[in-house]
Design a protein around this nucleic acid. Structure first.
Lengths: 218, 218
DNA sequence: TTATTAATTTTGGTATACCTAAAAGATAAT
DNA sequence: ATTATCTTTTAGGTATACCAAAATTAATAA
């Protein structure tokens, strides 16, 4: 199996199983990898033989420790490159993902560690996603997008993923600064609009805006 | 045909035809690409169909203008990355080639142009090879191989055409870095060995080594 | 010029990574 | 529990990028 193919499968399995439950089903993989379910079956059988996954027919798949290790190193490369492209090379956050999809397959640890060092060995990328260290260790965070918040309650604004003037002005207007305390009052089921209280005033946040706000549960 | 395959063929054809004559023969390609002559025949037939090369059976191959354009852009990417790795990321010039072999296939012009700008749009890479600009233009020079030098006198080392670790280490040992001043003391008629002075020390250069050193008369 | 050698091409074949359509298996709804 | 539905697997097939061995073509030497 080609290295790039292996890496794309493992990375995708990792991403799907960390967000959701532990086991990944074929259809999810087929969607994310943009290939047919039949091809997924075939690919998983091979990855099972290579001992990167435990694939149980008609049930689901999870990573072995070898698979997990490789997946983590791809995730590290991807997030380090995204951060480097954005912070050091001046790319916008909307541009970095696509380029990092290619760069993540360059296999040279010294290179990634060098980039990481230049960035100050960050543990999170500005999406709030954790960057595994050189040994694959991840700092657990409870950062989420505001749009992913399911419960009412208190949160703290930790970052934004959109740096447009329009968006920043909107935040400023409502005193939504980094570190601000946010209390979710309600989430509109119909369009996921969020009503919250910030510095005693009520603010309505569209789902689009909520997508761009990183918060921490407090 | 996969993009990476196309790029590797065209880059190799470009490198072989610029060093030597205009037409490239299959065996040279088979060697450089580490594939069998039979595969080269097949590959060239496809590249001909794609109009990247003019391939004349049992005679030889040359790039079309489309092929040349693509080749030049790969060469640009390769040399920009080499320069960036060496100058900005602190890699040794014996390390950069291998990494650039992978990085050269990342297709994002904005990225390459950004790196180039950071480097001050250099016209030569750390090996002394010219870097095509964004439009594919190369700075022409009056560089010659050291082995072609006929007279005693002063020269400046501008590049090398062999990127093996062994050769680069040899150069380093004698402080033969790009830009170094070289004074030819004598050329042995029998075997074309060259004796020269570099940073006040006498160094003997075999004709094989001299073949790989690009110098400029000063 | 003819024989010898070397390079190239053809032929027939492999492995990878996909596919579609049909069959089998699991899940949910009544 | 049984159908209807949705998911997964199997079966059979394609295109790419390689290969070795045989056949052909070109170059060289006698």
């Amino acid at each position: 199996m080609r290295q790039e193919t292996i890496e794309n499968y493992l990375k995708t399995i990792y991403n799907l199983s960390s967000n959701n439950s532990t086991v990944v089903v074929n259809q999810q993989l087929a969607n994310k990898l943009n290939i047919s379910p039949a091809s997924v079956t075939e690919g998983l059988r091979k990855l099972h033989e290579l001992k990167f996954v435990v694939y149980e027919k008609s049930y689901g798949t999870r990573l072995t420790s070898a698979g997990s290790k490789l997946a983590l190193s791809i995730v590290r490369r991807h997030r380090i490159w995204e951060t480097y492209l954005a912070k050091e090379l001046g790319f916008g956050w909307d541009e970095v993902h696509e380029i990092a999809e290619e760069l993540e397959h360059i296999k040279n640890d010294k290179l990634i560690n060098k980039l990481s060092a230049i960035l100050g060995n960050p543990m999170f990328d500005p999406h709030g996603d954790p960057i595994p260290d050189a040994k694959g260790k991840i700092k657990k965070s409870n950062f989420i997008k505001l749009s992913e918040a399911k419960a009412k309650g208190n949160y703290c604004l930790m970052g934004v993923t959109d740096h447009s003037v329009a968006f920043l002005k909107f935040l400023e207007k409502h005193q939504l600064i980094i570190g601000a305390n946010i209390e979710i009052k309600g989430i509109e089921e119909f369009d996921n609009t969020i009503v919250l209280i910030c510095t005693k005033k009520e603010v309505t946040i569209s789902s689009k805006a909520a997508e761009c706000m990183i918060v921490e549960t407090v």
